[in-house]
Design a protein around this nucleic acid. Structure first.
Length: 559
RNA sequence: UGGGGCGUGGCCAAGCGGUUAAGGCACGGGGUUUUGAUCUCCGCAUCCCAGGUUCGAGUCCUGGCGCCCCAGCCA
């Protein structure tokens, strides 16, 4: 079967570079890597990077993509995040095969390289305080100045580093720095830190180390050790590339990967930074990392997003160096396309109101037949029970409706999907004027929803049989923020823009009987939206469905 | 008056000096339709600005303007 979401990945400037590298013979085989820090959950922005890196590995001959946990900061990282990250990657359908690595796998080699730098007089142990180092660094327009410890002897530096490693010092007492240029216009080149003392154990290496390498040093060396050919990262590391290259040139590593930067993904009406996501979780603004409103992969999975929709989205947005904010509609389009093709259809009434067919026999029941997918007859049909009393959507009836309202109002005929034509005769209201019952008469000649006389019935509405329907809770989700770019609001904190109506819980929804044993990952409740059972709260007999995404609704737009 | 990037329609994004500037999303309109869904047809930019080079520039040069990133012993 042809899957619409696995069409050829569009090219981009990075693939063009790789193509050229292969054509020139610079590389025979391509190796990329996805290097998450295990300090939080993956989000849709990571998916862009994942699809780029693993996508390249999938598309080029003999290419691979390594998964490498960048675990150089035991103060922030936890192994529980490692498991979550692996799960998300597998869910998306990517496979790192044998290539599971940790930066901590290279701690011994990293240390040896650091000693080598000292021996080359390209690194030194600084004993300035953190505050003084900041002062000595200068600022954006003023050059920095050399630390008084910059000219320690090689022997002393090696000895000090050794003792730092062994835990002889307190955190902050010493720092191993590269010896580059304190006047460099690029601040990253002003003697950046290589190793800092952290007297804490590490999830992978236990208590072996009292020093841990910094990103700039560890990342390029790890890439080189693994023979990565193209090290793809986001734009904010562009300024770090000279340092990336400096380390590898000084150390004469066996390989020198090429760092290429691209712009990170921004989606409107949400936030994408790990810091903010942490804050939403820890501040209780959402129910957890997997809250269905979160842009995390775990949240989107629980919400009902599909891996194919996410991958299709990533291929549509492209890869460039331009800052961007992608509209949610692009993601939703990818989702609807996938769900529309794969989700079986069902009838469900979210806001029920009774419809009584006065001329239908009181005790009669019929079993009608509904197609599971209008475009795929091979998916068959299902039985739908019908009787005198039905539930329909409250919004499908209106007093004094305009001509263009193709639903129920007194005197108007509509089709009950898969069932009969019914004509509204009158309604019953309560003391407040709210409609409590819609009364209709039906035409027995229209069983199945069609008539012999060719009469046109413009409107078709969904329904369930009162006697047969099952009750469910439905959680209708909407955008988490009320403004397109909450993180860019200068005057106020992004949390001030959390959408108070981002979830709307309906308790008394009535679903067609077959849904009591729902076992598909997603359904389309016809005319409304796509839904999935909530993976944590839905139980047999106490069903909970999440609204994944609504149907397009051109009628709602006109109103 | 430091350094590094970016600037093609509402949002993305092709374009690599030479037909009327791809495509997607969004939007507007027509048709089909037992989901106001789907499907389908149509419409929708002269490329940040100003000079210049050239027979010819979104693509090259010069000068502006605008936006983003960098002063963690975070990544």
């Amino acid at each position: 079967m042809n899957d619409t979401t696995t069409e050829t990945t569009p090219s981009n400037f990075i693939r063009n570079i790789i193509d050229a590298d292969i054509a020139s013979g610079k590389h025979q085989q391509v190796i990329t890597r996805f290097p998450p820090e295990p300090n939080g959950y993956l989000h849709i922005g990571h998916a862009k990077s994942i699809c780029l890196n693993f996508g390249i590995a999938n598309d080029y001959p003999n290419a691979t993509c390594h998964l490498r946990f960048d675990d150089t900061n035991p103060g922030k990282e936890k192994s529980e995040y490692i498991d979550a990250i692996k799960e998300d990657l597998q869910w998306l359908g990517f496979d790192w095969g044998e290539n599971l690595h940790h930066t901590s796998d290279y701690f011994d080699q990293l240390y040896a390289y650091a000693v080598q730098l000292i021996k080359q007089d390209k690194a030194y142990v600084d004993s300035l305080s953190a505050d003084d180092i900041r002062l000595y660094r200068g600022n954006l327009t003023a050059p920095g100045k050399n630390s008084p410890f910059r000219d320690r002897s090689i022997e002393e530096n090696i000895d000090l580093l050794e003792r730092m490693k062994n835990g002889d010092f307190a955190e902050g007492e010493h720092l191993l720095r590269a010896k580059i240029d304190m006047a460099a216009p690029n601040i990253n080149m002003r003697d950046p830190a290589i190793y800092r003392i952290k007297n804490m154990s590490h999830p992978m290496t236990g208590n072996k180390w009292h020093i841990y390498p910094m990103y700039d040093f560890a990342h390029c060396v790890s890439d080189a050790i693994e023979g990565i050919t193209h090290s793809l990262c986001t734009l904010e590391f562009e300024d770090h590339r000279p340092l990336y290259d400096w380390f590898l040139d000084e150390l004469k590593t066996p390989a020198h990967p090429q760092q290429i930067e691209f712009s990170r993904l921004n989606l409107d009406y949400t936030v994408m930074s790990k810091r903010k996501l942490h804050e939403l979780v820890e501040g209780g603004y959402v129910s957890g990392w997997d809250d269905p409103r979160m842009p995390t992969l775990s949240g989107m999975r629980r919400r009902g997003y599909t891996p194919n929709a996410i991958k299709d989205f990533c291929s549509r947005i492209g890869v460039t160096k331009k800052d961007n904010i992608i509209e949610m509609s692009v993601l939703e389009n990818s989702l609807r396309e996938d769900l529309g093709e794969h989700a079986p259809r069902a009838l469900a009434v979210l806001d029920p109101i009774k419809l009584i067919i006065d001329n239908y026999p009181d005790d009669k029941e019929e079993i009608l037949s509904g197609v599971n997918h209008p475009k795929k007859p091979e998916e068959g049909t299902r039985d739908i029970p019908f009787s005198k009393e039905l539930y329909i959507e409250r919004s499908d009836y209106m007093d004094d409706a305009p001509k263009k309202f193709f639903r129920l109002t007194e005197g108007r005929e509509v089709r009950l999907r898969f069932a009969y034509y019914v004509t509204c005769t009158h309604v019953v209201k309560d003391d407040n004027g709210n409609v409590t019952e819609v009364h209709c008469s039906y035409d027995p000649e229209t069983r199945g929803g069609k008539s012999e006389d060719g009469r046109k019935v413009k409107g078709t509405i969904h329904w369930v049989s009162v006697k047969h329907s099952v009750t469910a809770e439905i959680r209708q989700y909407d955008r988490l923020f009320s403004v397109p770019a909450p993180a860019l609001e200068k005057e106020q904190d992004y949390k001030d823009f959390i959408n108070k109506d981002s979830v709307d819980i309906l308790q008394n929804c009535q679903l067609e009987a077959s849904l009591a044993h729902a076992n598909m990952s997603a359904y389309q409740f016809e005319r409304q939206a796509y839904f999935c059972q909530d993976s944590v709260d839905s139980k047999p007999g106490a069903l909970v469905f999440n609204r994944i995404v609504t149907m397009r609704d051109s009628w709602a737009k006109k109103k």
